[in-house]
Design a binder for these strands. Structure first.
Length: 270
DNA sequence: CATGTTCCCTGAGGGC
DNA sequence: TGCCCTCAGGGAACAT
């Protein structure tokens, strides 16, 4: 599931192919993703030079010298393949550079999206307007979490998943960060002590950094057409490990709430 | 406003 | 072998 670290890894993988290059060809195979592809996507991108890439929350950003920024979201199942050796079902968008490098956006579930946003307005673009701070940025830390959690009755897990509280976390890294900080997912946000909240802020950052590092170490897999991501999965402490032993020896539990699985250790997390 | 629920979508995997 | 069922979950929309 592409969360912040997977998108960051993706952007880092796209950068060597796209940065400074001119987009020579754009092919939209089907446009009914989460939102329809911009009808004029091809016109606006073809011939444009990529001036840089970036990321905001779980969105990848591709800036061009035409004043447009291409904003993509990978949804649940999206990924970019680099120089694919064959066309696959669900290759919805193809991009070719002036060097002949090719990119294919493959997204079976079509929960992802591709938008063109005027670069000057990207920060205020609808989905970005209410986003909380980047967890790896300077404005995120113990103070921010304390302010956001104060007086809240909602479970810590729900608050961390709320993109307005902090941007870019998904189910996997929320479960991992809460375990690292020793906080039960169901604990009300307002009933977590200051020191514990500071530990949570640290945990969020370190789990994301570790995942990005793991993604970087397997970057070659990212470009392999048949490769699965699997970046950080070997380092999961609780996610996907129901019934297995936590590091403390206690059996890891799973609970489904409104269709989402929560994994936690009842001994380490209170 | 805060919180909780549903829906969208397709492929993988388990049970029989 | 094949069919049916459940599950995966971000984010928008809707309900409470």
């Amino acid at each position: 599931m592409p969360e912040l670290p997977e998108v960051e890894t993706t952007v880092r993988g796209l950068a060597p192919v796209l940065a400074g290059r001119r987009i020579a060809r754009v092919v939209a195979n089907r446009s009914d993703l989460r939102r329809p592809l911009p009808p004029d996507l091809g016109q606006r991108l073809t011939g444009a030079r990529v001036t840089g890439l970036g990321r905001r929350a779980k969105y990848g950003l591709i800036h061009t010298d035409r004043g447009d920024t291409m904003v993509f979201h990978l949804g649940m199942s999206g990924r970019w393949r680099v120089d694919p050796s064959e066309a696959l079902t669900h290759d919805h968008l193809l991009i070719e550079t002036d060097e002949g490098r090719r990119l294919a956006l493959n997204d079976p579930r079509r929960f992802g999206s591709v938008d063109l946003v005027p670069t000057a307005e990207v920060e205020d673009w609808g989905p970005f307007g209410a986003l909380g701070p980047e967890p790896l940025g300077e404005s995120f830390g113990p103070g921010h979490l304390a302010a956001q959690f104060e007086g809240r009755i909602a479970p810590a897990k729900a608050l961390l998943l709320d993109q307005r509280v902090v941007a870019g976390l998904g189910n996997i890294y929320v479960c991992e960060a809460l375990h690292m900080a020793g906080i039960a997912p169901s604990r009300a946000g307002g009933r977590i002590g200051t020191k514990r909240l500071a530990l949570l802020a640290d945990s969020v950052r370190s789990v994301l950094l570790a995942a990005i590092e793991a993604g970087g170490s397997t970057l070659r897999d990212y470009a392999r057409p048949d490769g699965e991501l699997g970046y950080f999965s070997k380092q999961w402490r609780v996610y996907g490990r129901e019934g297995q032993a936590c590091g403390c020896g206690t059996v890891i539990r799973r609970r489904v709430e409104s269709g989402r699985s929560t994994f936690w250790c009842p001994k380490c997390q209170r």
